[in-house]
Design a protein around this nucleic acid. Structure first.
Lengths: 214, 214
DNA sequence: TATTGTGAAAGGGTTCACAGCG
DNA sequence: CGCTGTGAACCCTTTCACAATA
């Protein structure tokens, strides 16, 4: 299979949202031009991105909004639901748990693990916070697709090791630390401090803005 | 001034963290090789990145950990403190407010604005949650460097317009919506759903992992 | 000898431009 | 005629490879 760049996949996510919005607005067809304007990019980029996955448009007419939306839904794997294991029931964990868009997009936090005994036993919605020691039990009982790490930097490394040992293959990591690379394991980092630091770099250096587009 | 790529700036943030860790471990000098290993990249990339900003090493010896760390600190603008205005005192806002790494890195949330009257008047630490209508007053009283948008998608657009109108030039946006481009305004999006969607794409397509490195 | 700093080459993503087709 | 799909050109980032130097 052709190698798809990360940028292309991220843009596919954006296109999906744009198409949802357009569908809600009652638009039936859309051109690569219109889609491009929405994301501040070039029409050629839109067409090239889509071309990696197939031919979805009609020459002279553009794309059927609903049809393209459904196609991208399938490409991104959003035509099914995904089970997330949340690690960490602190402030960030709580925010992630109550983040509506996750459920809307097909992501369900089906288990929560936490080290702090004071929090264990409490329930968020209908999900009980369980002790981190029950990791293996949870993995045996529930089909977990990904883990979401919402714990402090200092405990992230051992916890990640344990998760990987137990067979977790995909981790969304919010701990502000670079987890070491392991063959066969995909880790995606969301490092909020780095986002702020790219901004201070721009403020400080009055440099050209990196990207005003998706 | 030479145009620096966003990837380079992000890696500078990582190098900064690596150097902090190395300093804490008592290391005095470091080679581009060692720095590269830490981030799963090539030594040439490290050297090229640094070369955009100057010459910090000594041939045959490598870099002085403390010296290089301080240099990067200055480059990223972390040798001063930055005032953040938090918009939204919900779950995410609360998580961001209590996120230790922000303060450690030099970012202070000095004001919180919120529409929900039930939350207005409460205090988080020594920062009082104020009504969003007081935006202008807050901007007049406090030197705000950036705004952090932690509100739902549906209110993000009008709120962002208001912020920009009032002179805010830099926004870190957590609302899962693409804010329109405005000349002279830098907006950085953190879209958690898109992060998850790149992961489901990989899971679903068994594709090569995008990046196992910084 | 070890390791940096950097031109030059390679690689990969974006844009161009046009053939193809409704 | 309008707009897609795509090979080729272009451009930016990464990697190579080596001269410079502690």
């Amino acid at each position: 299979m052709l190698r798809i760049s990360e940028s292309t996949v991220r843009r596919m996510s954006h296109y999906y949202r744009f198409l949802q919005e357009m569908e809600d607005e009652g638009q039936v067809t859309v051109s690569s031009q219109k889609l491009a304007e929405r994301g501040n990019i070039t029409p050629a980029k839109v067409r090239k991105d889509l071309s990696y996955f197939g031919s979805f448009g009609r020459r002279g007419l553009g794309y059927d909004v609903k049809e393209l939306k459904e196609a991208i839904k399938g490409i991104l794997g959003l035509d099914r639901r995904w089970n997330l294991l949340l690690i960490g029931a602190g402030n960030l964990g709580s925010a992630l748990f109550s983040f509506r868009e996750f459920r809307n997009a097909g992501f369900d936090i089906v288990a929560i693990l936490e080290r702090d005994a004071a929090k264990v036993g409490k329930k968020w919605g209908d999900v009980e916070i369980q002790d981190f020691g029950l990791l293996e039990t949870v993995l045996a009982e529930k089909k977990i697709d990904m883990a979401v790490l919402a714990i402090p930097a200092k405990s992230a490394l051992p916890v990640a090791e344990k998760l990987i040992q137990s067979g977790i293959k995909t981790i969304l990591n919010f701990a502000p630390i670079k987890l070491p690379y392991r063959e066969g394991v995909t880790i995606r980092d969301v490092n909020l401090t780095i986002e702020l630091e790219t901004l201070t770099f721009l403020l400080q250096n009055q440099t050209e803005v990196f990207e005003k587009s998706i």
